[in-house]
Design a protein around this nucleic acid. Sequence first.
DNA 1: TTGACTTTGTAGCCGATGCTACACTTTGCC
DNA 2: GGCAAAGTGTAGCATCGGCTACAAAGTCAA
Lengths: 153, 153
Amino acid sequence: MSKSSGFSSVASRAAQATDAAAHASVRAAHANELAEDYVEAIAMLIASRGEARVVDLAQAMGVTHVTVVRTIARLQREKLVISQPYRAIFLTPAGQSLATRSRERHELVVAFLRSMGVSASIAERDAEGIEHHCSPQTLAAFARSMRTRQTRK
Amino acid sequence: MSKSSGFSSVASRAAQATDAAAHASVRAAHANELAEDYVEAIAMLIASRGEARVVDLAQAMGVTHVTVVRTIARLQREKLVISQPYRAIFLTPAGQSLATRSRERHELVVAFLRSMGVSASIAERDAEGIEHHCSPQTLAAFARSMRTRQTRK
DNA sequence: TTGACTTTGTAGCCGATGCTACACTTTGCC
DNA sequence: GGCAAAGTGTAGCATCGGCTACAAAGTCAA
């Protein structure tokens, strides 16, 4: 792994444009992460206890209720949730579908890490960060790998 | 609202605590991402052209030079880089070792994705986001998987 | 009904990361 | 030496995601 500093100028110049694009992608992904995590949590709360309240979300996300309130306001601007003062929070169709996609992806990543031998708790933790940065191609590779691993066992 | 009714089981409460911890981990990871990306880029620039200048960093990261200047100021507060006005940027020993670790990890993730059949450009892009969220255990699993794959071929 | 408790909202602070516009150094060439 | 271009720094703005402290609304039981 440790190939010590062998960078040609030409290669590095070409790599710079690529790097910049990659970093830009990461920044873009970050902008959506919170939204995805919130709609996912909201969907889970609705499924498990019938409604999503600010306090429950705050506990699920590990932040104060104030942060939740402000974030929910943003999600409403983005038409992902519907909320009225002092009422429960609901998902719009767009929010619903984002939540579903996010959960499926989350579960795929967790299952994949588990299949690699990562412990349950760590898989869960890592997946939470990793899932937002996996392209469809990478997710497909994960799924394929799990199928192969299964048939081989 | 009927919080005491039905579904607020011990299991879901426990899951919530886990989720909150995972989200907290992700937030903590984000705080270090930029620093790691910067020192990595600085190390690459020094290796490839002898010094790291603000403009080059700006191009590598895909941001304006202003953002670079401010970020470098923060990295200097954190004792990762040394910089003087209108001069090139250098890494402290701490910055150097962080850069090395980051690059090794980056390369491991890229190689792993490649070994899974992900194309080079996408592997590079995804790795940029994924690498910051991989625990040692997950990285070890990646390395192990690559070894297995290799011996099997 | 009323009063205590819970929940939600608001005000205002902070730091991080972006940006544009403008000012100042450095550099390199004539 | 002097000037123009390139590089770097500063001012000031925006957004986002944290927070504490306090205010207002809802809920529930006596």
